[in-house]
Amino acid sequence: MSGRSTSRVTEALRLLAIAGAVFIAILPLVWVVLASFKTAADVSQMPPRLLFTPTLDNYRSVLDAGFASFFRNSVIITFAAVALSVVLGVPAAYGFSRLRVPALRALLLFVLSVRFVPYIVFAVPLFVIMVRLQLVGSHVGLIFVYILINLPLVVWMMKSFFDDVPTDIDDAAAVDGANRLQSFALVVLPSTAAGVACVTILSFIFTWNEYLLALVLSGRHAQTLPVVLTRFLGGMEDPVRWGLLSASSVVVLAPVVIVTLLVHRYVRAGFGGSTT
């Protein structure tokens, strides 16, 4: 309204602010990726060196330090935990959306309430229980425990996806002689494929990144990457080890960052709707 030049100035300021936000958002990632290719001499230079001869030495050291086996732990635990939560949670969400469930509200509230309890409250009893069951340090133990993080998310988000599918198609399937299971698996589920992708990706990110439960329950043999990273790099204050720290950080980050950038539409939709 108030003249072309002012609106052009506002627009420029707006774009500048957005650029600033993006810069701060990605700076740690960019920094650590660059540092992972620097030599020990380059990595501690201030002001930071933007032009340097890249080296792969840090990644070699990460491999030599036996990171591969921890990477394997993380992959096994994450994939199994996500699969378990999706396999349990998606049918449950369908049930909550479609069936005449006794005590429906109470059960839904119970599922949701799990998300509101601080993890440390679960972690202490689970530690004691799992010591008794000799599950500390096993993959199986952590896989089950990660239900805590993922299942409520899967159920609530998938329920809203199922709610958006018109019940007419269930009725049509019923008329054609499909039973509940068939109409779920063959008719309704395929039309919520995007929703399944969405909850799977979110569960993957949360499980891969989880630290507290893994710290308490993974013992010596099931350590996942976030736990290893903090233990194994005790002396990272020493700039000589910054390259190693960066390279192992990049290894931990790569899967989640790549997935997010590839399918960020789903990630955005997921987080946008995740307040339930």
């Binding site: 936000a21 993006v22 958002a25 990605i26 740690p28 990632l29 920094w31 650590v32 540092a35 990110i205 891969w208 990144n209 630290y211 990457l225 976030p226 990273l229 903090t230 790099l233 990272m236 204050e237 910054w242 720290l245 950080s249 931990v252 980050l253 989640v256 960052v257 997010t260 950038l261 960020h264 990630v267 955005r268 987080f271």
Partner: peptide, 22 residues
């Protein structure tokens, strides 16, 4: 929008280490 989601999908332990060290 994609780049702005990066902080919250980065492994918190890693981002904290990066902030702390660098």
């Amino acid at each position: 929008r994609a780049l702005l989601t990066i902080p919250m999908i980065m492994t918190p332990v890693v981002s904290t280490l990066v902030w702390k060290t660098f």
